[in-house]
């Protein structure tokens, strides 16, 4: 079976008064039907730009300059806006981090969900209303019928995000992209919403791309993980392999920086020195080299991905070697 989404060599650049910045640099990844793929990385590493490039939602001087995005075998980058609209919001939808700014404040929740159903599924008004109520119940909105008449600002953060998810699921998409869906929420609400989202994803057989910086969430949700750093995919593995045996020094360091609630008081957090580079498209060789404790001379010219067994990919020239030193 072919992949539902296959991204090859995706390169996105932003042009401003200062020149051109390549924010996403030759990113390759794929998503199979019904699986959850996580893209994890720190802020500014290009993970949101990747998702916006796929959805065709780049603005302010951003443009995809190279590569292809195959959704169900069709290259999305070659489509016109009109053709894209038939897929976007229908077969492929997105959940944003901040539901208050992505919901329209002057329309009720109900009218926003039914609008999307009516446009994409070509259903009658009454029927789409029923569908909307059904989907709101599914995402765990208490008293769905009353919620239909409410405006976004009258709902709490968690309820707003539920409305957002309902809207994204209303057309039973084949792929859903969730960009930091619970970052703005409390842990208890996050746990509820992620559980619900996971159940719905299984029930409807959707594929999901979860973009996050929360490594705990990755462990809970993902089938496969891509680690992104400075605009590049630096490691890709099954979630188990990644957590048990990370092959990139950055991934290993990232896992070691997370404080847990069952830590012993003696544990000292490992920290990565330095900061994520702000402008990274001019860096020669490995982009993590200046923060990497295992850096050697050859790192400064290295570009390619190594492929290990079981689909484990890593962008490090000292793979298998740095662990020993």
């Amino acid at each position: 079976m072919s992949h539902i989404l296959e991204v090859k060599g995706l390169t996105t650049a932003f042009t401003g008064d200062y020149g051109t910045d390549i924010t996403v640099d030759h990113v390759d990844f794929y998503v199979d039907r019904g699986e959850v793929v996580c893209i994890v990385g720190e802020s500014g590493c290009g993970k949101s730009v990747t998702s916006l490039s796929i959805m065709g939602l780049l603005n302010r001087g951003g443009a995809v300059i190279d590569g292809s995005v195959l959704f169900d075998g069709k290259n999305l980058l070659g489509l016109t806006e009109k053709e894209l609209d038939e897929i976007r919001g229908n077969r492929m939808t997105m959940i944003f981090q901040d539901p208050l700014t992505s919901l329209n404040p002057v329309f009720t929740i109900g009218s926003q969900i039914t609008e999307s159903i009516r446009i994409h599924q070509k259903l009658e008004k009454e029927e789409s209303r029923k569908r909307a109520i059904q989907i709101l119940q599914k995402v765990g909105m208490p008293d769905a019928e009353a919620a239909m008449k409410k405006y976004p600002h009258t709902l709490s953060g968690g309820m707003r995000q539920r409305a957002m998810i309902a809207m994204a699921l209303s057309c039973q998409p084949a792929l859903i992209i969730a960009d930091e869906p619970t970052t703005a929420l409390d842990v208890t609400i996050q746990a509820q919403i992620m559980k619900q989202l996971q159940e719905l994803q299984k029930e409807l057989g959707m594929a999901m791309i979860l973009i996050t910086h929360d490594i705990g969430l990755v462990a809970r949700m993902a089938d496969r993980v891509y680690v992104m750093y400075a605009g590049q995919m630096i490691e890709h593995a099954q979630v188990k392999d990644l957590f048990l045996a990370p092959k990139h020094p950055y991934t290993k360091a990232l896992l070691a920086t997370v404080p847990g609630i069952y830590d012993s008081p003696e544990r000292k957090l490992a920290s990565i020195t330095g900061v994520v580079p702000e402008k990274y498209d001019t860096i020669q060789g490995c982009r993590f080299a200046d923060r990497c404790p295992y850096m050697k001379e050859k790192c400064l010219t290295y570009e390619d991905n190594e492929i290990l067994e079981n689909g484990h990919e890593v962008r490090c020239c000292r793979v298998g070697e740095w662990e020993a030193s």
Binding site: A191, V218, A219, F243, G260, I261, D263
Partner: peptide, 21 residues
């Protein structure tokens, strides 16, 4: 209790291995 259960755990071999993966 709710709070503790809501926190995603990733440490291997600590406390609650069943919630990992």
């Amino acid at each position: 209790k709710t709070l503790c259960n809501a926190v995603p755990v990733l440490q291997i071999g600590s406390g609650k291995p069943e919630t990992l993966l």
